[in-house]
Every structure is written in C-alpha cells, then in structure tokens.
Write a protein that binds this DNA or RNA. Structure first.
Lengths: 345, 345
DNA sequence: ATACGGAACTGAACCGGTTTAGTAATACCC
DNA sequence: GGGTATTACTAAACCGGTTCAGTTCCGTAT
C-alpha cells in the first residue's frame, strides 16, 4: 500500500485535516507547521490519491475528446494526432489527462459523450468536427458539462469556441490562382454538414466574388479520397471545365490530382490543384501539392487551455481566433492554360 | 446531485450493502429481493459512481497508452489512429476507457508512465514502438503495472506480446521483386532501435538469403520522409545501384520514390519500390505504391483484449500472433531493367 | 478583570461505493 | 427438542481525501 494522508499526519504529529490544509495552501495552519508537514510529506514520498480527491471533490481531473470518424478514414487525416499532441501539452501543465473515445458506429457518438460525463470520467469535453445545427450542443447542455468547440457552431452555443480563420486561407489560395491567370476555379468541398466544410466553401465563393468571377463550379464531396475522385470526375466532365480546383483537404486533392493525371491531364499544365492541411506526404506527390498549412497542434493546445480556464474559473468564455493558414506554394499550381481543352471522360 | 446507492437502498427498503450485492451478482440476497432492488435502481436511473467504485476497489477502470513521437511526425503515420480505434472497440465492451498521453519531449516518456500509474489513472498499459533493450520494461515492472507489448521485446519481458508476422510481409515483397527479375534489392530500414525496424530488416536479409542473393544493400533510416530521402540517395549513388528498394514504411517509400523521380529515374522502369503500411494516400501516388497492408485496428483490439483479460484474471498471458501483412501490388513495382544504368547523383 | 475575536488545530462527517462482522430467522439433523 | 448450518440481511468500517463544526489558546479592547 502506498503512503496515505493519515501516515503523513501521524508522522508529522497532526491531524489529517491539517495535512490537507497544508498541502492545498489553505489557511488554518501556521507557516511553521505547514513547512514541517510538507517536509514530512516529501520525506515519505506522499502523493495524494487522485481517486480519493476525485471522490470528495466530485472531479475527474480529466478532459474528454470523442472522435467520430470511420476508423478506416482516421489514419488519413493528419489533424487529429497533432491536435491531440497539442491538447497534451496544455494538460501536462495542470495534472489533467485526456480520455479519448473513438465513436465508430453511427449513433455511438452521443452514447460516448453520455458515458464519459455520466460516469464522471471527465470534467469537460472538447468538441471537434462541429456540424451544422449540431445535436451535440444541446446534449452537452443537458449533461451540464463544460466544453469548448473547435470552430464556432452556427446554432447558438454557449461554449467558447476556438477557431481558425479558414476564409483567409482559402482566399489566399484562390488569389494565388487568380494571379496565375485562372478564371475557371472550382471547389471540391468537404462534407457540408461540417462547419469547416461550409466555411471553406463560403470562403471560396467570397474570394471568387471579390475577383469578379462566378462561383458556379462547386462539387460536393465528403473529405474522402473516393469522394474527391467522384467530384473531380464530375467537374472535368463539364464542357467548360475548370482550369484549377481548390480542394477542401489534402486527401481529396491528392486523389483528384491522381485521377486527373489518369485522364491524361497534366498538373499543373492543364489543371492546377490546391489542397488543405499540408499533410507531410503532399510534398512528395508528383507534382508536390500546393496547399494550406494549419497548426493543429496549436489548435489543440489552445482549445485545452480555454477549457481548463473555464474549469478553474479563470476563463471569461470568449472565443479565440487562431492565425490563418499559410499558403504553401508547390508545383501543383501553375499558369492557367491558354486553351483549357475539351472535357474529359 | 445524482442518485446514489443510499437512495436506492432507502427506496427499496434495504441496506446499502444489499444493493451492492444485488448489483454485483453476489450471494447474500434472495432472488426476490435482488429483482426488486434492480428494478428500483432502474426506476431511479441509478448509475454506480465510478469514482466511488474506484476508491474502494483501488481500480481506475482505464488503460493507458503513451505515444512517444515527435508531434510533427505523429500525423504521418496511419498506424496510431486506427490502432487506437481498435483499442476502443475492445474497451467499449468492458466499460473501460483509454487514457492517452503523448510524450513529445525526450525523457518525457518515462515520466508519463510514472504519472499515469502512480496517480492511479490506469490499471494497465499498452506498450507500442517497442525498442531494443527497452528501458520501459523494467520501469513497468518496478511500477508493478500489468501491460501488453506490441511486438515481443528482445530483452526478457514477462508481459504478453501481441505481434504480427512482419517477416512474412517483407518476404512476400522480396519474393514479388525476385519474381520480377530483380537481383539488386535494397532495404531502407526504419529506426533499428525499434523491434519492428529490426524485424523488417532481418526479414529482408532472410528473404534475400533464401533467394540466394546477398543482403548488402542496406541503408539505415528512421521512418521519416527526410531519412528516407537520405538513405535512398546513398543507395542510388552506388556504382552497382539497386533496381528495387524495399522500404520499412510508406512515408519513406513515398519520399524515396519522389526523390528517385527527381533524379530522372523512372518508377518502376528503372527502379521498383515497395512500402509498408498501406497508407491510404499511397494508392494516389504517381505511380501508386506497392505496399504491405496491415490491420492496425485489429492489432489495437487484440492488444486491449489481452490486457483486459490479464486484469480480470481471465488471461493466460500467452503471446498472440496476428495474421501476416498482405502484399498489395500496384504500379511502383515492375520487371527489373535489363541494364540498371549508371549511379545517380 | 472580562469579554471578544481570530488563528491554529482537531475530530468527525462526508463523498459513494465495497466488504466484513454480526444478527435474526429458518432449515436440518440426530 | 436442542444444537448447528445456512440463508438473508444489516450495521459499520473502510478506501483516502476534503471540509465543517468545534475547541484551545492567545492577544486585544473595554
């Protein structure tokens, strides 16, 4: 058995209560006694039991993250690992830990949140992949659990949000293409049920509008490679096909580029392509991908910090906006072709 | 406040103890009473508090996983997300959760394990990325915490291991290349401090031996893209350069392929390339990558199950060997060139 | 001198379960 | 019919902390 507070109390010749006060910096013990207790505690190597602490203070000292993705897709996105690493850097400073749940089956997501909260596993949760009219917001309100959202939900959410100015990133990509002479700039969007899917699409529309171009080349997809291929195929089949495609993520861009090449199109000779995320493999594609570099680690760190502040009462619950993604220009974008050529099938 | 065991006891007109017995299927209550208690509990919506349970039973009902990787590399490996998803599928069935720690700073890894165990956060840990003479084995023994290792450590480990017959995968890749007429088959290895790095190298040596070929074209790397490029450069600079390279993972293969192409080599015309992991993006490379498909999700699931069995006393602590990786032949491998041509710089 | 206030500390209750020791009632046995 | 098991249950201790309600003791104001 490990050493307990009673052992320390006995060794220091005081009561359990005094040890507790001394440890937590509360009044009720003289400076001399406090010091003596702390020194005895250190000598005995006492570590207060989190379990006991949790029981009496009704806290878990942990944050929860539920990742709802098809497991086969999980490995394709460089976002989560780095995001989680960021969370950890913030937690490590506060003796909190991260409880991770992966909801694979549809509908399992809600159960995951319920379980984490009702079992008292976590004191707060981080909400990612926020969706349009997200049902998890009322759920978390019902569960009365503090939360942060990654991106601001469209439906009224009382939780602080940590977001990135995605518009600025997409706008930079579009401006880059416009500067290269492109006039037919398409967008292969991610799932439009996601706020970030919508943000990127709207930014694309806005940027085209600002350039005086019509935003008529939108193809809906779902952030998956297969979806990217299908959307790309649809776009390239059109008579007045695009000379550039802005993809909502790297995986779709990669798959789209590969598909376009399989049709005999040259990238960027016939078609310019941009991605989003700056996944490491994109610099080794042929050609390397022009994309938008985000900082998911920072995102995770800030999200966790905001949530921790809320829990300790230090936070004011304000939204945070992180720096915009940075355009990384590589060889997948180039001057617009003078004649885009016929549609491809 | 949530409903507690006392509320249930009072409502059912019995003592707390009786409720506890009824809930846990222990003797000491008559079938009638048991049923009545359970029905009252259900009516009140009682969920026994994990915290209280944990305190009295000295358990955490959680498993720990420490991921020690450079955060910038974390997103490049499709292994962990799927592995974690697999763990979750096993945990979900047992009301356990996963506590995840990411150790970024060097030396932080040991502290992570200590903290998780000493704070009583976890009842057991899953050890991945097992290294040669791994210092974490004695550490876990000192901490007296149950564990499973992913791959069998070379130093004596008392913990059950869940491994994959990596040899069979690499051997299949080499045999595939030999069948295509290759005689100069190199290997770009992952970090040799890792058991899986060594396993893959040894399998490559073994396969070449079986084919009567010398295993003289080894280039050490570290599973990173940059390392893969450097190792590839070294191999291609040799006078009698390889006509095929077996890489220890997809990222190095991707980077190596891109580098070889930048030298003007045709893949697979001049150089055949195989990877390992079957990351999704590899099928969209140009050419798509021949690689070895593993099942990290199954791996995670089995590892968690073995550990849970140990905790519940059901396990016999035996090693488990999962099915060998499957060779996925794509366009990055082809017939050996009749004349490999001069070394490239 | 006496009442009052605050600091320093103790003992016990409490968080919500599990588990042990003890008790009452019934069944069994010779 | 008296002793002994067995069953069904309760009361209380316990896990290891926090916190509340007192108690002592001291300094100070009246």
């Amino acid at each position: 058995m490990a050493v307990t507070i009673s052992d320390v109390a006995q060794a220091a010749g005081v009561s359990k209560g005094a040890v507790s006060y001394a440890l937590n910096g509360q009044p009720g013990v003289s400076p001399d006694t406090r010091e003596r207790i702390l020194s005895v505690a250190k000598d005995l190597g006492w570590k207060p039991s989190l379990r006991a602490k949790g029981l009496s203070s009704a806290k878990a000292y942990a944050l929860g993250l539920v990742v709802a993705r098809d497991p086969s897709l999980l490995g394709t996105d460089p976002f989560f690992p780095a995001f989680i690493a960021g969370i950890e850097t913030a937690l490590a400073e506060h003796d909190y830990t991260l409880v991770l749940s992966v909801a694979t089956a549809p509908g399992a997501e809600e159960r995951c949140y319920r379980k984490l909260v009702e079992n008292g596993r976590v004191d707060g949760v981080i909400l990612t992949d926020v969706r349009h009219d997200d049902s998890r917001i009322p759920l978390l309100l019902e569960l009365k659990v503090p939360a942060v959202t990654v991106n601001r939900p469209d439906a009224g959410s009382p939780f602080p949000a940590v977001s990135v100015d995605e518009s600025a990133g997409i706008i930079a990509a579009v401006e880059h293409l416009v500067a290269l002479g492109h006039r037919r700039i398409a967008h292969v969007g991610g799932g439009q049920e996601y706020i970030h899917g919508r943000n990127r699409r709207e930014a694309w529309e806005k940027a085209l509008g600002a350039a005086g171009l019509p935003a008529d080349l939108f193809a809906a997809a779902d952030f998956t490679a297969a979806g990217g291929v299908a959307a790309t195929a649809g776009l390239l089949r059109q008579a007045d096909r695009p000379t550039a495609i802005v993809y909502a993520n790297d995986l779709m861009a990669t798959a789209g580029q590969s598909y376009a090449q399989s049709l005999g199109l040259s990238v960027p000779g016939d078609l310019s392509i941009t991605g989003y995320d700056n996944a490491e493999f994109t610099q080794y594609l042929n050609p390397p991908l022009t994309t938008l570099a985000t900082d998911p680690m920072l995102w995770g760190r800030v999200a966790a910090q905001v949530l921790l502040n809320q829990l300790t009462g230090a936070g004011r619950g304000e939204d945070t906006v992180l720096p915009a993604p940075r355009l990384v220009v590589r060889a997948s974008t180039g001057p617009a072709p003078t004649d885009p050529g016929p549609a491809r099938h």
